[in-house]
Amino acid sequence: MLQILAQLIVSGISVGMIYAVIAFGYQLTFATSKTLNFGQGEALMLGSLVGWTVVAYTGYWLMLPVVLAFGLVQGAVVERLGVRQAIKTKSESGWIMATIALGIIFRNLAENIWGRDALKFPSPLPETPIALGGVRVLPMEIAIVVGAIAMMAAVELFNRRSIYGKAVVATANDRDAAGLMGINTGRVITFSYALSSLAAAFAGVLIAPVTSTGAAMGGALGLKAFAVAIIGGLSSGVGVVVGGVILGITENLTGYYISTGYKDVPGLVLLLLVLSFRPAGLFGRATIKKV
């Protein structure tokens, strides 16, 4: 009994970390521009499929930089085509429709290039589970957790240590004041979209060896990660990790103890509860403002 519970929790954690990385991407663009890429799930899907094509020639590790670079470009394209104009005209909702539309276009594109079926993604690590105290873990599941944390830590380090990272934080704090420092805040916003899609593309090639890939993989992941971003708060890095893991675990528990048919319900119920009682998210902080 306990062993099953432990098993469900452990495999919930790795899925949860994928949600966390995508949700982290939502946070990146929200911080600088107060906008989100609702095609984030499709960014993950595209990254994953590009990785699937490239991995056949290069192997897994050399494929990673190609996919990350692709993610950067794809995110920058989304910002230029879908978001920039909406920010310029201070449109409240233009970016919502534009990023959803771009997501649908990307999905159609992917269906035409790679087809509609799920594709098996070669795993860089052995596919036999390791037994850890009675719990069976795939090496790739461990790699997901490590990769996800490394990715978020790298961005955090960049933001805290480098002058360009500080310029990103400054833009998030106060865009006008950042402009007065000589920071090209329009470029910072493009960059945060690029980084956000990079995170999604990275998540896509992390999870693909475990779940397979395909043009349809993005929608549900993007939506669940959105729930995680709301649950964890759009401003808290720790929040998305905790939120992602909570969602990953509850999904697994519900799927096993209740029914796989209800797998998605608890996360969305949690989302509704958080929206009602803590709209800033479980870890969202009220920003300090002095007048």
Binding site: K166, A170, N173, D174, D176, A177, I183, I288
Partner: peptide, 26 residues
């Protein structure tokens, strides 16, 4: 130095000063 100060509230004092020199740093 704008009305209302507009300091970067989630950055340290040292980082705020460093960003003042952003154009020089780049």
């Amino acid at each position: 130095s704008p009305e209302g100060r507009r300091v970067f509230s989630t950055l340290s004092v040292a980082d705020n000063l460093e960003l003042g020199a952003f154009t020089r740093a780049i």
